[in-house]
Simulated scan of single mutants.
Amino acid sequence: MSSDRRTAKVAGGLFLITEVAAVGGLTLYGPALRNADYVLGAGADARVFAGALCEIVLVLAVIGTGVVLYPVLRRRNEAAALGYVCGRLLEAAVIAVGIVAVLSVVTVRREVGAGVGGEAVARALVAVHDWTFLLGPNFVLGANTLVLAVLMYRSRLVPRFVAVLGLVGGPLICVSATAVLFGLYGQVSPVGSLAAVPVFAWEVTLAVRLIVKGFDPAAPAA
């Protein structure tokens, strides 16, 4: 197996991990994020910790996609390839801030509870997570998607219909995030979820393509 084929398989696997870990983390975080009285009750701390673990895996996978693809992408456009790696690092860093915020809610519940404004502090920490969720997996993800999709489209490393999903999804999720920023609708809403579908389709389709067939052998030489 050639090095590029191995790179494609690993990158595809990492993209799939990002999708599973992101959904798992958000689902498991539910009690702490949706229940305003979380700090007042017994709490579902183990579930929140499991969500944090999912998001730690997400952070590692996000970084991994940038690092693993860099040797292949830099042969096509070194500056854009480096930009993609840096963008993925930024995305991972923003997600990590959200992890810390949610874990801090658990600390507030255990050590402060309802006393000394514990509920208000918890709400503030959840707000921090919500903003990181908007900035990282939306604005930064959209920019990273666009950069990678342009590289894939121009280099023809994957079929162009796959790259087009990213060319559509990247800008669309950025526009949607801007609408959420100005309060036009909620991020976790039917409209917001619909706007995220093309990016989800792009990452899953790209992942399956890379795992099953690798980079297109008919792509022009670097």
Score class of each variant (00 low, 15 high):
residue 107 T to S: 14
residue 140 V to D: 03
residue 201 A to Q: 06
residue 196 A to C: 04
residue 201 A to M: 11
residue 91 E to A: 07
residue 172 L to T: 13
residue 207 A to V: 01
residue 7 T to N: 14
residue 166 G to W: 00
residue 80 A to H: 12
residue 190 P to T: 13
residue 96 A to W: 10
residue 16 L to N: 08
residue 111 E to T: 15
residue 14 L to M: 13
residue 145 T to R: 00
residue 93 A to P: 05
residue 112 V to K: 04
residue 15 F to L: 14
residue 210 L to C: 04
residue 88 R to P: 03
residue 30 G to N: 15
residue 35 N to Q: 05
residue 143 A to I: 13
residue 200 F to S: 12
residue 21 A to R: 04
residue 19 E to Y: 14
residue 209 R to V: 14
residue 42 A to L: 10
residue 116 V to S: 12
residue 83 G to S: 09
residue 53 L to E: 11
residue 206 L to A: 02
residue 104 S to N: 10
residue 39 V to L: 04
residue 92 A to Y: 05
residue 14 L to Q: 08
residue 120 A to K: 09
residue 62 V to M: 06
residue 135 L to N: 05
residue 24 G to I: 03
residue 98 G to N: 01
residue 90 L to S: 09
residue 94 V to M: 04
residue 114 A to M: 06
residue 84 Y to V: 06
residue 219 A to H: 05
residue 121 V to G: 09
residue 109 R to S: 05
residue 36 A to F: 07
residue 22 A to Y: 14
residue 36 A to R: 13
residue 114 A to Q: 12
residue 40 L to T: 00
residue 150 V to K: 07
residue 152 M to T: 10
residue 161 F to I: 14
residue 95 I to G: 00
residue 57 V to D: 00
residue 124 A to C: 05
residue 177 A to S: 13
residue 190 P to N: 09
residue 7 T to F: 00
residue 141 L to Y: 11
residue 118 G to W: 00
residue 211 I to A: 07
residue 110 R to E: 15
residue 166 G to F: 01
residue 57 V to Q: 08
residue 46 A to K: 08
residue 106 V to Q: 02
residue 185 Y to M: 04
residue 56 I to V: 15
residue 181 L to S: 12
residue 194 L to D: 02
residue 103 L to N: 11
residue 138 N to L: 12
residue 27 T to M: 13
residue 87 G to F: 08
residue 205 T to M: 00
residue 65 T to Q: 11
residue 114 A to E: 15
residue 8 A to N: 04
residue 70 Y to K: 14
residue 127 A to Q: 07
residue 107 T to P: 07
residue 188 V to C: 03
residue 96 A to H: 06
residue 172 L to E: 09
residue 30 G to A: 15
residue 194 L to K: 08
residue 26 L to W: 15
residue 98 G to H: 00
residue 186 G to V: 00
residue 38 Y to I: 07
residue 113 G to Q: 02
residue 133 F to Y: 15
residue 4 D to H: 11
residue 125 L to V: 01
residue 88 R to L: 11
residue 10 V to M: 12
residue 83 G to K: 10
residue 102 V to P: 03
residue 162 V to K: 03
residue 19 E to R: 14
residue 113 G to D: 03
residue 137 P to R: 05
residue 135 L to Q: 06
residue 5 R to I: 10
residue 202 W to R: 03
residue 180 V to A: 01
residue 97 V to Q: 02
residue 222 A to L: 13
residue 152 M to W: 09
residue 48 V to P: 04
residue 189 S to R: 12
residue 129 H to E: 07
